[in-house]
Design a protein around this nucleic acid. Structure first.
Lengths: 323, 323
DNA sequence: CTGTTAGCGCATTCAA
DNA sequence: TTGAATGCGCTAACAG
């Protein structure tokens, strides 16, 4: 193909990568030859030679929870138009698996590695720090990142939920949630919620947590359970929208008037919440923006800054009609 | 590191890849050296040398529709325990984008490429056929694949929906759907539905399609619209569960008794449908199994068979309580 | 602006 | 069972 265009192999490479100055005429010939032969460059060779690849490693805790595909959507959006390719791994909330994935991904010498949260094994942290790839830790901003954190303060979101419910006149507030070991951010929101209540001398009047991940079904069952306990409850703060939608469906099935007899509030701002007969009161967490911003910021520079950076994508209360 | 273990570079490579016979003692020394130095092999170099990589290219039409993340989950499950890594791309239902992604992915010399459906540009089809990588076309099985198809007959699923509704005693059946240009499989189900009705001399009494992708909100609006038209309708077949859940929520909000006044049926078997006050009648599409089966089958052999293969993962009716 | 030269870090021969 | 030699296809550095 270099022969076909009457140039050196190298010039071809330069045309493809748009690097260095090239005579317009030469470029034309090369491009012609390229699509005459249907040439596809070998990325492995390129990566080896340049000891860097156009890969962005993405590590997600789960694909079952819709928020992570949405985060991935944002990452994709940030990558669109570039020639970076995401390589993804799923940890199932297991830090050992995360460490192993980090190792496999580093083997490709990626441009960046994106993961969630600040919890990593020591070995994983060392690998990330030792490598010079850019590192994005997403969703949370409440601790010091390795390189870049993009997300929101879940502690702050929890406080905001407390304030919102109190502003609406509820004071007998309960909590319904799911497993904290896996979902640390849910725990942070819980703590924020308690702090927010504590600020005005209140406390949760009841709480119920289910084992395992959040889901509509378990939210529905959990709300039924906490109501069966008989405590006097005016409003329920859920660990997230999945749980809250489940709770709402229980109220529909059990004919509990929402929000008059019981107010409900979720977290995330999922579409399904807004399609309910009464739109769910919740907190929008901007997953898409988190992913997109993270990618754009990381790829802006190939090198880390002197100090880790934190980008707060914020959150906003969605008033809804259930609280 | 070869020095540390007192062996040649080459022996190290053999230990890592578990290839060729190695003295237990030597292997021990090498492994020791490996994790003493925290050595991470360079995959790009490996791929270049072997002209094949441990990458599986995955091309999805969208991440907004929950079925594709679930397909991805299945793919991940099939990859778990192997050292293959998925590299993913999203087409937004655009065949040109698919072609471009196929080209970028082939540049990595992947072990396999997984995409959805049988619609590809001519160029894309040529690239896939020319390369010797294994090719999985997922979700549908109604046409002849390039190498391997894994999925279900959407035509058949549409007929099954028709039969189910008729068996339940409904004969005035309407259709509510979304954009067919993007979602060819939804169209196939529609055709199957019409055929199923036609078999016993029936036809749809009304139909309504919204532009754009399926969503709970548009399902809700679409059902409201078709009911407002005034045709006499006993049951509605939706293009999928997102739309059907939206329809159900409309019935809740508008106090339309389900299924007594109006029966509803969806497609996919999403979890949310089963969490509704009345579980949704729907058709389970086994997305997870499709992804997992496809990966497992493709990676079983590095070479294509003489004849393309088709794996029918089937579907099953979920009776529910809405039809 | 373009050509030349020399590796990148492995896997794959072939010998020993 | 191990070592030595060769090259995968490209990019980087340097000349010209």
């Amino acid at each position: 193909m270099a022969r076909l265009a009457n140039v050196s192999e190298n010039t071809v490479s330069r045309v493809i990568r748009d690097k260095g100055a090239i005579a317009p005429e030469t470029r034309r010939r090369v491009i012609e030859a390229i699509d005459a032969l249907g040439y596809v460059p070998n990325r492995a060779a390129g990566s080896l030679a340049s000891s860097s690849s156009m890969i962005v490693g993405v590590i997600l805790p789960s694909l079952s929870n819709i928020v992570f595909p949405e985060l991935l959507r944002g990452i994709h959006a940030g990558l669109a138009g570039t020639s970076y390719q995401p390589m993804i791994g799923v940890t199932d909330y297991d830090l050992e698996k995360e460490q192993q994935l980090i190792s496999s991904l580093l083997a490709w010498q990626p441009a960046a590695i994106i993961t969630t949260g600040f919890d990593h094994t020591d070995a994983a942290r060392r690998m990330l720090e030792a490598s010079k790839v850019r590192v994005g830790e997403l969703m949370d901003i409440d601790r010091r990142p390795i390189d870049l954190a993009v997300g929101l303060s879940h502690r702050g979101a929890g406080r905001a939920m407390a304030r919102h419910l109190m502003r609406r006149g509820y004071s007998k507030i309960a909590y319904v949630g799911h497993d904290w070991d896996a979902d640390r951010r849910a725990h942070a929101r819980y703590l924020g919620l308690c702090e927010g209540l504590g600020d005005v001398g209140l406390a949760l009047v009841a709480e119920h947590r289910v084992d395992g991940p959040s889901s509509t079904l378990s939210g529905r069952q959990a709300l039924a359970a906490i109501l069966a306990d008989g405590a006097e409850i005016e409003a329920v703060a859920f660990s997230n929208d999945d749980m809250a939608v489940g709770g709402y469906l229980h109220c529909l099935a059990a004919a509990v008037p929402v929000p008059d007899r019981l107010a409900l509030m979720g977290f995330n701002g999922l579409e399904i919440g807004q399609a309910l007969p009464k739109p769910l009161a919740t907190v929008l967490s901007n997953r898409f923006a988190i992913g997109k911003t993270a990618v754009e910021t990381l790829l802006k520079s190939p090198d880390r800054a002197f100090e880790p950076a934190i980008i707060d994508t914020g959150f906003s209360i969605i008033d809804g009609a259930t609280a």
